[in-house]
Computed example of a mutant assay.
Amino acid sequence: MTIHIYGIRHCDTMKKAFAWLNAQGLPYDFHDYKKSGVDLADLQRWAALWGWEALINRKGTTWRRLPESARDCPDAASAFALMMAHPSLIRRPILIRADKCLLGFDAEGWQAFFQGGA
């Protein structure tokens, strides 16, 4: 079963996720949404799972560098537009295997995810 991982290659959290997958011997396809962008359909699908608020990385430098007025996301449509314009705002990694998904990296959570036959 193919594993798809979405994120930004040089992000520290992504490096941990890649290292974890490699240590487990799990092959994966990587989508760098900073280089390749992100589709609105993907953002909508992920928002249906976790809520659009959870998709925004408010701890990163991209968020802090935005003008205060740009940070005002009153609804999903404005948040999606902001994330598509600034893909670094999307929380990462997003891992998809079959029809199951994970948001963020937590080694114990990932271990449980893969042991559960996801």
Rank of each mutant, 00 (worst) to 15 (best):
2 T>V: 13
3 I>S: 10
3 I>E: 05
4 H>R: 14
4 H>Q: 14
7 G>Y: 11
8 I>Q: 10
9 R>C: 11
9 R>W: 01
9 R>E: 11
10 H>V: 12
10 H>Y: 09
11 C>P: 02
11 C>L: 08
12 D>W: 04
12 D>Y: 06
12 D>Q: 12
12 D>E: 13
14 M>R: 02
15 K>V: 11
15 K>P: 11
16 K>H: 07
16 K>I: 05
17 A>T: 10
17 A>H: 15
18 F>V: 15
19 A>D: 13
20 W>N: 04
20 W>S: 03
20 W>P: 01
21 L>C: 10
24 Q>D: 13
24 Q>E: 08
25 G>V: 13
26 L>F: 15
27 P>M: 06
28 Y>E: 01
29 D>W: 13
31 H>K: 13
31 H>E: 07
31 H>F: 14
33 Y>D: 04
34 K>V: 07
35 K>P: 00
39 D>K: 10
39 D>H: 07
40 L>S: 12
41 A>K: 13
42 D>S: 04
42 D>C: 09
42 D>M: 14
44 Q>E: 08
44 Q>N: 07
44 Q>R: 09
45 R>T: 09
45 R>V: 12
46 W>T: 00
46 W>R: 00
46 W>Y: 03
47 A>M: 03
48 A>H: 04
48 A>K: 12
49 L>H: 07
49 L>R: 10
52 W>H: 15
53 E>D: 14
53 E>V: 14
54 A>W: 01
55 L>P: 02
56 I>G: 00
56 I>L: 15
56 I>P: 00
60 G>I: 07
60 G>D: 07
60 G>R: 04
61 T>D: 11
61 T>A: 13
63 W>C: 05
64 R>M: 12
64 R>P: 00
66 L>P: 05
66 L>F: 13
66 L>K: 15
66 L>T: 15
67 P>T: 06
67 P>R: 06
68 E>K: 11
68 E>D: 11
69 S>I: 08
69 S>M: 10
70 A>D: 08
70 A>I: 04
72 D>N: 13
72 D>V: 11
74 P>A: 14
74 P>I: 06
75 D>F: 07
77 A>D: 15
77 A>N: 13
77 A>G: 10
77 A>C: 03
78 S>W: 10
78 S>T: 12
79 A>R: 01
79 A>F: 01
80 F>K: 07
81 A>R: 10
81 A>G: 13
82 L>K: 08
83 M>S: 06
83 M>T: 00
83 M>E: 12
83 M>V: 00
84 M>G: 06
84 M>P: 04
84 M>F: 01
88 S>E: 10
89 L>S: 02
91 R>Y: 00
92 R>I: 04
92 R>L: 09
93 P>R: 01
94 I>K: 12
94 I>Q: 06
96 I>H: 15
97 R>Q: 12
97 R>V: 12
98 A>V: 14
98 A>Y: 01
101 C>E: 15
101 C>F: 09
101 C>W: 06
101 C>L: 03
102 L>G: 00
102 L>S: 03
102 L>A: 12
103 L>W: 00
104 G>V: 01
105 F>T: 08
106 D>T: 02
106 D>Y: 02
106 D>W: 00
107 A>G: 07
108 E>I: 05
109 G>I: 05
111 Q>D: 10
112 A>V: 15
115 Q>A: 14
117 G>C: 11
117 G>N: 09
118 A>N: 14
